[in-house]
Structure formats: C-alpha cells, structure tokens
Design a protein around this nucleic acid. Structure first.
Ligand SMILES: [Mn+2]
Ligand SMILES: [Mn+2]
Ligand SMILES: [Zn+2]
Ligand SMILES: [Zn+2]
Lengths: 143, 143
DNA sequence: ATACTATTTTGTAATTATTACAATTTAGTT
DNA sequence: AACTAAATTGTAATAATTACAAAATAGTAT
C-alpha cells in the first residue's frame, strides 16, 4: 500500500513517518494541487492526532528534497504537487481550478542569459478554463 | 514630470491621484520588483500622509487595469512591476534579487490544450544568480 | 528486546501579509 | 462654488505561515 512512498522517503534518507506517508498518498491520489488546509483537514479525519504544523513541516522537508513541489500560482497560499516530470499550470480565475499543462518547455535546462544557474522552472497561466467558458455561453440566451 | 503616468491613468479612465502617480513613478524608477512594504516605506518619507492600505488599493486597481503586474514568485508576498512587454523572471534563492528574463515565450498567445482562454502568463525561474556564484567561487580557496 | 538519541510531531503563541470597514477627503463634474 | 462618486486613511480583523518548547518516535546501537 505505502511501499512506493516508503521508497521515495528512503531514497532521500528521510525517516518513514505516518504524516509523511499520508501526505504523499494524498497528493498521489488527488491531483488538485491542494493547499495545506485541504491536506490537513482531509487527513485529520482519519488521523485525529495530526497537527497542522506537521503538514507544514513535512511539506517543507519533502520540498527541500524535491519529492514535492510547491506552487505559488494562487498568490495567497502555497499549492502542492508531487514532483513528477516538469509541467506547467493553469489557474482558472473563475472557478479556481488548477490544471496541469503539458507543453514542452524550451526554456528548461538552458543556461539563462547572464549565466544564472536555474534550479526550478514554474510556468503559470491564468485565464478562464474551457468549462467556465461553456457555462457562460450556456447562460447567455440571446446576443 | 508626471505626464506619462497621468496619461496612463487617463487612458484607463482612472482618477489622477497623488498615490497612484507616485507609485507608478516609483515602479518606473525602481526595476527591483518591490513589494508593498518597500513601495510604502519609500513613498511615506516624502508623503507622510500616505496609508499602507492606499498602496494596496492603488496597486489592486492598477493591476485590474493591467497598468501594473503582480508577481507571486517569492511565495510570501506580492512583488510589483510596471506592465511593459511580456517577460519572465528569475529569483535568486541566495540573495533574493528578482531579475527580468527576456526570452521569447512560445507559449504566449497560444490557445492552451483543452481550449482554456489565457489572460496571463508568468514564467518564474529560481536558482543562483551569476553574482552569487561568483562570490561562492571566490570564497573557496582550495578544491 | 531494550536503551539511546537525534529527529519528528504536536499544540500554542507569535508574526506577516493582506483584507474589511467606516469616516474623511478629494477629483472630476455641474 | 457646490455636488457626488470614488479614493484615501487608520484601525481592526483575518488568513497563512513560522517560532518554539515539550512530548513522542524512528532508526540505531547494545
Ligand atoms: Mn501539477
Ligand atoms: Mn520584470
Ligand atoms: Zn473554471
Ligand atoms: Zn544572487
């Protein structure tokens, strides 16, 4: 059940703890780019002893180890993602959904002008998602 | 002195007020991608009646009107920029500087997969800037 | 299996950035 | 000069995150 998460942690010489395993499982099963509160309140149900601070701590540790990734696309809170292959993100300003955008990024693995060393690349798009566009069309009955 | 900022505001049917003009001037003269606190504390010296809330309000209004742009690259606070032509940003995780990155963005003006309508594009790079790399090299005397 | 210890978890108390709100002021108009 | 909608201001509230110290635990050594 948790073997893959155990391996992930072991590979980074991190201790195997329940909060870490549960957070990884949650992220693996919810590709919604949840914030700390969403992760915490969901896991809290099954693990009442869980502390919000632990969610912050665990995510920080796992982010430093590049196991998870934090997105600043929303501007008000960090959103989390399992750190699989590089991909970009789209935030719908209507419904708030954050979608994966799998486009080739020609700017990755490129030494930036001026010789800056790049360790992270974030591509954020914002606009109105397909679904919300559909809704708006449907509501307009004339014009 | 302020003609260009007056014009910017007039073109968007926004009232011409001292705080707005001063903020625009500040951003025009400081390409540091300052946060609210930096803008506020700097302007406060010459305009003691300025309120922090006004800086927030003004920036919000001008952002809605696409006169300024807010960056979420730092993750803890919004950084502001005059909204000139599209460019990306590099955050040095050592010294905190935020630099403009002028690379062509082939993902702009493109209908995203799934038909999402794109209104904003943010390209954030994080790593170690040229300058900080130089420093680190200099300090190592052997190896 | 037991003991040990560095690390992690936990709960609470700060801190920081931002927003809400109501009173006052002001820009643009009449 | 008078009017009014909008902007500014100061303060109070909120939301996200961090600081911290005590309790618990994972991994290791005995
Ligand atoms: Mn993602
Ligand atoms: Mn810029
Ligand atoms: Zn949507
Ligand atoms: Zn640097």
């Amino acid at each position: 059940m948790y073997e893959k998460y155990v391996k992930l942690l072991k590979d980074h010489n991190l201790k195997i703890t329940s909060p870490r395993l549960e957070i990884l499982k949650y992220l693996d099963e919810h590709h919604t780019h949840p914030n700390v509160e969403a992760i915490y309140s969901s896991l809290k149900k099954k693990h009442p002893s869980l502390s919000r601070t632990t969610v912050y701590n665990s995510l920080e540790t796992m982010e430093k180890n590049r196991i998870v990734q934090s997105l600043t696309i929303s501007g008000s809170e960090h959103r989390y993602d399992l750190n699989k292959s590089l991909h970009h993100h789209f935030l719908c300003t209507r419904c708030g959904i954050i979608l994966d955008i799998d486009i080739a990024c020609p700017n990755m693995d490129k030494t930036l002008q001026g010789g800056h060393h790049v360790e992270e690349v974030h591509g954020y798009f914002k606009g109105i998602c397909k679904n919300c566009q559909k809704k708006e069309k449907g509501w307009r009955t004339n014009g």
